[in-house]
Design a binder for these strands. Structure first.
Lengths: 221, 221, 221, 221
DNA sequence: CATGAATGAGTGTTCATTCAT
DNA sequence: GATGAATGAACACTCATTCAT
């Protein structure tokens, strides 16, 4: 084989390496396009092209565009939620701090990046792909709610938080950070009369509001 | 000819009556389909069919699918926001009550109905239809933010609310009710391990939380 | 009828006058559009609109777009050819002058105006509307050839022109003026590296060329 | 499976062979339809069908109907004009002979065949497709005029032709052969009271006429 | 394994023509 | 007569998926 195999820093032949890396490359390419253009508007060919393979090869790894999307959902969100559970289990100290940490961490890892766009996609396509929607509910939404619910519960148990209905409060807590994710992904490029506020500033106001409330409080002395 | 002759010499000329009702019928049909299937996936022909007319007739009233969508947005959302400004202007009494009223009213009129689905659509399709996105920002998002911003400002001016950054707080306030709208429209039909909380209950918790805060407060006596 | 009838300079009521003028107005409007956009691309509605009537009214006078076109062809070209025959019959003097006159007159009346565009249309649509094509051959092409043929014949009979095959020479004579008509109508708006020559200048060159070749030359000894 | 299996293990891989031949087949089919029905009235699907492929395949090779048309123009006309320039450059001998040759050759290769129909199409559709019209002016009309202009200039420079305005004379020269092309393509199938003259006879008369007019006459004393 | 040529169903939009009023 | 609301067939172009090589 005189044809010099391109860049082979390990013992493994390059072609072999590529073959094993294919699913990851395809997933990464798919994530980008799905977030940018949505599920229906993403063309199989451009995903393949960005991953450096041909259209046919994509179908060798994922039998349909829908299955490809499911794989992306699995890869981009479940991991972070699982890690969240570990963090919560190991935390010592104020629950308010834990809540702050969990939420800013979610924003850092998911919300502000490409993975955040997946949330947008799912909301959009849920009704057209009910099976996908159920999968997303089971693998992403329910675990997230369990995670935040456990934090809240701990705060109420310790007396740090006042008693509140769990499920409803979780919704209220999740909403702002999710909204930032959604709006950034959807309208980030649009001109606003009043400029969009910084997502991190919104998060801080939210934590402030949530913890302290909106009302002016009489000096408690 | 036993087939009931379509000519109907009654008081109301049928053709005329239809002509005046057409825009409303088309808008109603379009709203249903847009919410159910999204903008891109909705076919002009099925909208026309549900309104009981042919494809060509739809284009007699709206020059393109985009214009049809804009008309739906105006009819379903912009109207309510305009009314909201009037309500706010005329309100006398506690700003906390006004805030409560504005938000529950929005949920009653928009969030829980089909119109709420429009928000979902826009988030989903914004990046694929930038002109539509800008229209939505100008006609819905910006006015909504102005509306809530004016309420907040009034509360802070009167000393009823503590001082907070306006734009960011508006985001935090809007998020939960919007999230209920989005999730209902997207995942309403999905099974959840823990049942979805009632949206109205979530709204109440939100108002409670927002106004009072999460933290247990030392008895101020 | 107290409604003041608009501008009634004669005894005839205005509505009556309009009714009688309708065909002419429709024909004039149709000519403009057919020349500008061709037969297929001309919309029945815009013809009606320019004539100041509704779409339905057009079909009251002409049962189809094709019949409308035939009427336009009749009105715009046949008249001038018939007049040409009269002019030729009454002419006294040199045949070269007659030829010059016939051709410049055709350019003045037909070639440079809207009617000239009809020639373009016919050439374009002939194969799609064979019946129209035959009509045009019978009513326009054949009479034109007879007209020029008679002029040539007279010139050859009188010894002013040298003998040449009639039909072929007629083709050669007609071609340049027709080409000017066609090109003006088709490419008049296009940019040319070398500017289009003035049609009248081309006609003069043609007559110069043709006559220098056509004239019997006296033995110059 | 008695149905002869489509796999054909012969020497030439069928798929490959087709792929290379496709553009030519599509161009040939397109030329036929464009000439027969015009640009606007030709349907992409029927072109594909005549070339033995599906609609989608056509768009694999040409991104739009306009581009397909441009390709046909290039293939059918531009090539011959380019060759004409070479012929002119290499010619030795009388310019009258060269003129004769150029014009009869154009008739042989273009005018009498399907390619001639393209001229008809362009005249017809120019105003509805301005970009196409400009392309045609740049690629066909202007080069043709340059070609004939250079021949004329050479004749005038050498004293073989008498001095005449270049651009105008070119128009006069082109017109008859172009008219034959146009009429053949448009009315070829129509019955004429006096039969259409033979195009080649017309060409000969034209050359006779033109040259008797063009040639500098030796003082006949 | 990998390719990419080929497919054909699918959709927004236009417009000649009809007909109830 | 005149209107204009309604129709529905028509067409360019796209893209997920297949399969011969």
């Amino acid at each position: 084989m005189p044809k010099s195999s391109p860049s082979r820093p390990t013992a493994q032949p390059a072609r072999q390496r590529r073959k094993e890396a294919r699913p990851q490359e395809l997933l990464a390419a798919a994530l980008e396009f799905f977030v940018e253009k949505g599920f229906a508007a993403t063309r199989a060919e451009e995903v393949a092209a960005r991953a450096g393979v041909s259209k046919g090869t994509l179908y060798l790894y994922y039998p349909s565009k829908e299955e490809l999307f499911k794989a992306v959902v699995r890869e981009s969100l479940a991991v972070h939620i699982a890690e969240g559970h570990e963090v919560v289990a190991q935390h010592r100290g104020s629950v308010a701090d834990l809540l702050r940490f969990v939420m800013t961490e979610w924003w850092r890892r998911v919300g502000q990046g490409a993975a955040g766009g997946i949330c947008k996609i799912m909301i959009a396509e849920a009704r057209n792909f009910p099976e996908l929607a159920q999968f997303y509910v089971d693998e992403v939404i329910a675990p997230s709610h369990r995670l935040l619910g456990s934090v809240l519960q701990r705060g109420m148990d310790s007396g740090e938080f006042r008693p509140l209905p769990l499920a409803e409060t979780v919704q209220v807590l999740i909403a702002p950070v999710l909204q930032q994710t959604l709006f950034l992904s959807a309208f980030g490029a649009c001109h606003m009369p009043t400029p969009w506020p910084e997502p991190m500033a919104v998060l801080e106001v939210q934590m402030d509001l949530m913890l302290e409330g909106l009302l002016q409080r009489p000096p408690s002395g």
